[in-house]
Computed example of a mutant assay.
Amino acid sequence: MNAASVPSSPSSPPASPSPPLRTRTVFAAAHVVADPRADVSPDDPAAVDWDATLAFRRHLWAHGLGVAEAMDTAQRGMGLDWAGAAELIRRSAAEAEAVGGRIACGVGTDQLTSPAATLADVRHAYEEQLGLVEGTGARAILMASRALAAVARGADDYLATYDHLLRQAAAPVILHWLGPMFDPALAGYWGSAGLDAATDTFLEVIAAHPGKVDGVKISLLDADREVALRRRLPDGVRCYTGDDFHYPDLIAGDDQGHSDALLGVFDPLAPLAARAVRALDADDPKAFRELLDPTVELARHLFQPPTRFYKTGVVFLAWLAGHQSHFTMVGGWQSARSLPHLTRAYELAADLHLFPDPDLAAYRMRTLLTIHGVTP
């Protein structure tokens, strides 16, 4: 294929957000675009292509979705350190303000690099990040903390830590419960390896601070547990599903309620996800299921164990779709999934018509296969 026949990337979508979704609050956890020209090693701070990264956020806003910024999809703890996350939060929050986009940003403790951290260190780290996020005007998402999981001796340490943070939060926050399938360092979060006891502690935190919790993001990949927890939430507290396996059922809901969404899989599914939720807005649940149910096979493929490497598939699909010019990730994590895994992701996404320019996606897929010595 000569240079003249190489497909070009699709033109950028309009910068202004679409009208907001009405019946569900939906955030897509967005990935970051690495700078492939930077001379860095996997141990160096992330080199980010800020123009492409912000352009992708405008793409999400253009479809009416909110952006969940600096979450695990953005490779927090897997290539993006706190300094890089802080810059990402500042830039994305300013962009959101400029275009009128909805944004919520992750607050964690990843500036703590010493295994000798104390509970006081954890509180101070959370406070620093909370202050930065609230200073930008964004909603805060209190992320699960590896450091807290390492030093907490039981449920009381979690209760005290979150009590301290919620008392000083200037606006209602989203609490994030990320299961160990996404990050093994978070096993036993909320002070118990048993999920029933952990759920009770989680709900105790919420009940102790009425008006301080906008919602909870549940990423346990257990639909029944999420529904049971959702039914125990106080009035006015949203349940944002983080279940990338069962999201159509959870978002559709039942006669006792529904989940809103904060999902990494909505990074590649943004246009289709927005269309599906707008079908709910139009009181057409059948169209919602017809649009979203077929995406589950792709989601389950991207998030198959080891689940934490789903980011590789997300960035791969962004490259195929023309949202970035390369398949490179911060920290070199583009190598975390096999060529057969990526090939299947391409096939499933193509079947869903996710690529704005199918010829470009096919050309890039052939190029990747050729580089790996595979004849397309």
Rank of each mutant, 00 (worst) to 15 (best):
E69R: 07
A116V: 09
T241V: 05
G191H: 01
G188H: 00
A198Y: 07
A160K: 03
A228P: 10
A140L: 05
R231T: 07
H353S: 13
T312S: 11
A261Y: 06
N2I: 11
L130A: 03
V151G: 11
T113A: 15
A185I: 02
V32C: 10
V26W: 08
S41Y: 10
I218N: 12
A187W: 14
A152H: 03
S192Y: 07
D222L: 05
C105H: 11
D156A: 13
A299M: 08
D249V: 09
P13L: 08
L272H: 01
L159P: 01
A276Q: 03
I103N: 08
P20S: 13
P36I: 03
S5W: 14
A279M: 01
H341C: 03
L250P: 00
L320C: 10
H176Y: 14
E226A: 02
E87V: 04
L132S: 10
T113L: 14
E128C: 05
A38E: 05
V173S: 05
G253R: 02
W61R: 01
L317F: 14
F182D: 01
R91Y: 12
A55I: 04
E226C: 04
T241F: 01
L130T: 03
G66Q: 00
G108D: 13
V213E: 01
A193V: 06
H372V: 04
A349N: 10
A170D: 14
P14Q: 15
A125K: 00
H258C: 08
H372R: 12
L165H: 04
D281I: 01
S114D: 13
T73Y: 00
S12R: 15
L142R: 12
F316L: 11
D214H: 15
S114L: 06
R230H: 04
T370F: 06
G215E: 00
A336H: 15
T113R: 13
P14G: 11
M71D: 03
E97S: 09
G194P: 11
G131I: 02
H59P: 06
F327R: 09
A318N: 14
A55H: 15
L339D: 14
P376K: 11
L291Y: 02
G332L: 00
A152K: 00
D156G: 04
A350Y: 11
P172W: 00
K286E: 12
P115E: 02
A261D: 06
W50L: 04
A318V: 13
E347G: 09
A287R: 15
V32Q: 03
R146M: 09
D81P: 06
G108A: 12
L272M: 12
G79A: 07
F182K: 09
Q304P: 01
R238D: 10
L132H: 12
R91N: 11
R344E: 10
A169W: 12
S5M: 06
V173N: 02
